[in-house]
Write a protein that binds this DNA or RNA. Structure first.
Lengths: 339, 339
DNA sequence: GCGGTCCGATAATGCGCATGATCGGGCGCG
DNA sequence: CGCGCCCGATCATGCGCATTATCGGACCGC
């Protein structure tokens, strides 16, 4: 049963309705230009035939003929539907989807990109990026060179997350900076003077951003900062190390790790104050809340899509946007320092 | 700084390489037909120019010219990245993504045009369905008429989930039937004779499927079935009602509801045995496991994509597939009936 | 009655690519 | 030397649509 579908075209519709193909085109695209018009009876007749036949415009042809196709590319450096760090992608994609929906755009997920040690490559021979009008880029880490190359080629895109390497790169990110400073200030107010910081092992704009804001805020307040590396498997070790440094409050970059540390911490002799500089889905389910910073991921995704469509339509909009973060449970695990 | 999008075409490449456009086409599509050939030096020259310029083919044009584009459409009746029933879509999409990746296909998510009371419409004027080579359909409920219309138009697609309305509809689903029967048999073995069943309020193939298998398996065993409606807000009420009917084991369709009922149940005087006929993500985090049935969602999604590509390449493959479910924690909440 | 105007519809063209038809030239063979 | 052959490359066309230029007719005012 090999189906041989006779492709319906505007020409067919035109014949059935007794008009020219051009009229059909005008009707379906709903254009009511000053220079071109369709009489009401004709329009109705065409619409009726369309309805009866179930015709729909061939998007490829429309795109080729010069009109954009309302196709937004979504490139994720890792799997878009991961089992693990779903708390990272899921809210972003939710935002992307809802904005795309609101704008009448479809989403093109580049799943076919060849992979190099688990990560997808943005540019490679036969890249299909151009299939979309423009592209939203998602990933914790991105290759700055690739982004610059994209700019060079005039391909419209928006990165999600701060990318300061090349100033021509448009992005939407989270204003970690301000909120981290705010959190430090809060801790100072509550009497803390020695700050621990558990940092993530990799070095991206956002990690740097957070660390720098932390450092400078702590310095500014004349307090002390003790930076230590992440050790997800060994929360006790991290805590011991920091406690030995006499810190009274710990800032943890990775929210998952923060959960582990929080658990150890609760059973410690003298629990430290704890702040997570991020948010994981599991934190919602957690019985005991942690004071943490929350990036507006859904909003960031949505904003990225909106920025992209603005760019595509030639509007002159700000191309580097940082959205404010929230402080969740400010009183949960950020207590007063023992005096 | 409005970028001048100088669209690179095969003609440009051709000029730069000093050949004709046709040669470029042959090189990029890698066709080595018997009738057309390109000498090695020429091919290399063209490839070099392509590399230097970063050209890649315009998919719309290629599509229009009749070649497929390795583009798989994904249509979800609801949001693809929902906050709520993410346990439904997420594993399916994970499977879809991984299969697409393995097959070198990209994914086109139809997020545009949400028209009828929050549900997306599959067919509507201006549908972009045809931009994809074929389409995978996801959703708890689908409009059978629309599916038939798709078949009529010869559009290649595969539904996820059993759709028996029109026998021409290809699908990949879960073999609930066999596993529900298995679970009933297990309960019988453990001495249960009066079975409660908490059903979902809507009527789709899968709910019907489960209920019917339940009914017939219980009948077959000469046991009694008590069917009651879902009442997610009132687990105590449901339990009381069933306990009053002297049932000793309860089958709950909705996994979320099952969690609620399980909680009430544990604190009851005489806990009933409990079986959930589905799986939610929250069940993984739950401290106390529930005996439940698990549909291989990721595998179903992957299989749907594979079936679609097979159909597209004209292979004659089975078009209605049900994948076996698993029974998880068979001993957790399905105990022996009090004698 | 005639030029002018506006309305409604059509003809013609090109978007970028794939592909069958065509072409030219080098070479072997008789 | 001439014929045919095949390799390598080009030409020409059409996919379905949007769009511009064009056309014909009804209607207006003078």
């Amino acid at each position: 049963m090999t189906s041989k579908p006779v492709r319906l075209t505007q020409r067919h519709i035109a014949e059935l309705a007794g008009v020219s193909q051009a009229i059909v085109s005008l009707v379906v695209s709903g254009r009511t230009d000053a220079t071109t018009r369709v009489s009401e009876p004709t329009r109705r007749r065409v619409l009726r035939v369309i309805e009866e036949t179930g015709y729909s415009v061939d998007p490829a042809a429309r795109m080729l003929a010069g009109r954009s196709n309302a196709l937004i590319g979504v490139f994720t450096y890792e799997s878009a539907f991961p089992r693990e760090s779903s708390d990272f992608y899921a809210p972003l994609l939710r935002g992307v989807e809802s904005a795309a929906e609101a704008l009448g755009q479809d989403l093109l997920l580049f799943t076919s990109s060849r992979t190099q040690d688990g990560r997808r490559r943005l540019l490679h021979e036969g890249s299909r990026l151009r299939m979309a009008d423009g592209c939203v880029l998602l990933g914790r880490e991105m290759n700055g060179g690739e982004l610059s190359a994209l700019v060079d080629r005039g391909f419209p895109f928006v990165a999600v997350g701060r990318r300061d390497g090349d100033e021509r790169i448009p992005y939407v990110g989270a204003a970690y900076c301000a909120t981290v400073t705010e959190l430090v200030t809060l801790a100072i107010e509550r009497g803390h003077r020695r700050f621990g910081y558990v940092r993530l092992p990799y070095d991206s704009e956002s990690t740097r951003d957070r660390l720098e804001s932390f450092r400078s805020a702590v310095d500014q307040a004349g307090a002390e900062a003790v930076i230590t590396a992440s050790a997800p498997k060994n929360p006790d070790g991290v805590l011991d190390e920091l406690a030995a440094s006499d810190v009274t409050v710990v800032f943890v970059e990775d929210p998952e790790e923060a959960s582990g540390i929080a658990r150890s911490n609760r059973s410690a002799d003298r629990p430290l104050s704890l702040v997570a500089l991020g948010e994981s889905d599991s934190q919602h389910n957690e019985a005991t809340p942690i004071t943490h910073l929350s990036a507006p991921r859904a909003e960031i995704g949505a904003q990225a899509v909106r920025m992209l469509t603005s760019i595509l339509s030639g509007d002159d909009v700000p191309r580097r946007v940082l959205l404010p973060c929230a402080i969740v449970y400010p009183d949960a695990t950020l207590g007063r320092a023992a005096t």
